[in-house]
Design a protein around this nucleic acid. Structure first.
Length: 493
RNA sequence: GGUCCCAUCGUCUAGUGGCCUAGGACGCUGGCCUCUCACGCCGGAAACACGGGUUCGAGUCCCGUUGGGACCA
């Protein structure tokens, strides 16, 4: 078989949302897996709704996700003449006809059918027009649309969908659909088929909403003498009420941009999206880019729609909890050197970045983010929960202060003593600081945990965090000593 | 309204007639570890939409019902 060619063909009428990103991802994975070509085609023929901002947004989103395209972006609007030519060909070969029915006539018929509760389909009035009648109408310059002549035999369109299996649709159930509007604009079914043929698409991989159009497109392919591609339709992404997701209804949470701005690793989002409606036989869930390409297979795509399970208004589950979990796992698993640039960007946004982190302090920076990353969920956490590691200007958690410091007034003295002991240490190692703390607790006859928790809160403002002694080393002797003294001052009267 | 598609824990899913006492993951939850939190480890609650068939045997095949979705209008 010749080289596999697939495409992602979004309409630039809004932002790139996660459903679209998933469609793009599946196409991309399929292409990469089979050394095929992934094409980006912008279907911008709806000039009223298409915007440049939306095109930019889609391209930016795909680039951020790492879904790279090999050809394009092509723009459907550049090929309108070609679509019209195809319609002309269909007309000439007797596969289509001009329909002069007016909007009013059609609406009247439709309303009547609705009233009688019978199925409405175009009654093919103009299909029966004689050449003479057609000529007359053309002479009068009556506007017309072009309709496809659906075969009138008993047969049906049959195709094998790579996901849904054999699909059959009777000719009788397909109406003579419009392929060209009266203003000469081609319709989606036609443009899309012509473009896919021109781009030599071998596998049409799209949302399940395209399934109903496929029989019509197959009719067009056949009439135009095009070789048929393989079709594979994938399940849709729905909200918790089982409605199709859209930015209009759900807001920014469904846009790819939102994840970029809320501390997601691009690949983690891809990993999550891949799992929404696809699984592999090993029930494996965490993949690197290469592993997913290797594991991806059409046979694992599920037929039923998947629900994007986020809870609006819940700060903890602001998006699907599984997405957050996958992001957290990737953050703690990936090579820390790969993680570093993402953390850098977050620290920059928060005004915490220091250029030395990439030079003389690089080793310190890497070991510090390595130390703190396992309890973080998004990259944002590096600038919030991680703030005390990068700045002296951090806040103290009320509950932590109450529980670990204020509860025992004597801690003031203990913290000052520890500060003195730390200050005298020739080398502020994990072992040295631990030795001091344990020795002091022994001398005082208190549990080491009391001191440990107090120091953690005094030094980071938090009740939770990495093991204390590694934390102390990361923050450094001078800052630790200063913070212990400061805490002794401000929290005890 | 017509046509098409779908139906397993709250969510994502495994399951292709006996391996199902229905498995995994996220979330929830009990415990271990421990200086806290997280990780990790060991447990728990939690599902085959319903009704008929076919079969020795059905989550798995067939039919119907119900529910959901898509497309066309």
């Amino acid at each position: 078989m010749s080289q596999i060619r697939v495409r992602f063909a979004p309409s630039p009428t809004g932002y790139l949302h996660i459903g679209g990103a998933r469609t793009a991802l599946y196409n991309w994975l399929f292409a990469r897996k089979h050394n095929g070509v992934f094409i980006l085609r912008i279907e911008d023929t709806d000039t009223d709704r298409s915007t440049q901002a939306s095109i930019d947004e889609i391209l930016d989103g795909l680039r951020w996700l790492g879904i790279t395209w090999d050809e394009g972006p092509y723009f459907q609007s550049h090929f309108i003449a070609e679509h019209q030519k195809a319609a002309q060909q269909l007309l000439e070969r007797g596969h289509a006809y001009k329909c002069f029915c007016t909007k009013e006539e059609l609406e009247a018929k439709r309303d009547e059918a609705l009233r009688k509760k019978i199925d409405y389909k175009y009654d093919k009035a103009c299909r029966k027009l004689s050449p003479q009648e057609i000529k007359e109408r053309e002479k009068q310059e009556i506007p017309y649309v072009v309709r496809f002549k659906v075969p009138e035999s008993d047969g049906s369109v049959v195709f094998d969908d790579l996901v849904y299996g054999r699909i059959e649709k009777k000719y009788a159930d397909i109406e003579d659909f419009v392929i060209l509007r009266s203003d000469g604009k081609p319709l989606y079914v036609l443009s899309n088929a012509v473009d896919d043929y021109r781009d030599r698409i071998t596998h049409v991989f799209r949302g399940q909403d395209g399934l109903a159009n496929t029989p019509k497109q197959i009719l067009i392919y056949n009439a135009l003498g095009y070789e048929l591609p393989q079709f594979a339709h994938m399940s849709l992404t729905l909200d918790t009420k089982k409605a199709k997701i859209s930015k209009r209804k759900h807001g920014d949470v469904v846009t790819v941009k939102y994840y970029k701005e809320h501390g997601f690793l691009p690949w983690a989002l891809c990993n999550f999206l891949a799992l929404l409606g696809w699984s592999n036989s090993e029930s494996r869930e965490l993949f690197t880019r290469e592993e997913l390409i290797e594991a991806f297979d059409i046979s694992g795509i599920s037929k039923s729609n998947a629900i994007f399970n986020y809870t609006p208004g819940d700060p903890k589950n602001w998006t699907d909890p599984k997405a957050i979990a996958i992001n957290a796992r990737h953050m703690s698993m990936m090579d820390v050197r790969e993680l570093a640039p993402y953390v850098r960007d977050e620290l920059r946004i928060a005004g915490l970045w220091d250029e030395r982190y990439e030079h003389e302090l690089r080793e310190w920076f890497l070991s510090t983010i390595d130390l703190i990353r396992t309890r973080f969920h998004t990259l944002k956490d590096f600038a919030t929960l991680g703030r005390p590691y990068f700045s002296d200007d951090f806040s103290y958690d009320e509950v932590a202060v109450q529980k670990n410091l204020k509860k025992d007034p004597q801690l003031k003295e203990y913290l000052l003593q520890l500060a003195d002991r730390f200050e005298r240490l020739p080398s502020f190692t994990v072992e040295a600081s631990e030795h001091e703390v344990r020795q002091l607790s022994e001398q005082l006859g208190i549990k080491a945990g009391i001191l440990i928790n107090a120091v953690r809160t005094a030094v980071t403002g938090q009740a939770a965090g990495p093991g204390l002694f590694e934390l102390l080393r990361a923050i450094g002797k001078e800052r630790v000593v200063n913070r212990l003294r400061k805490a002794a001052h401000i929290f005890f009267q």
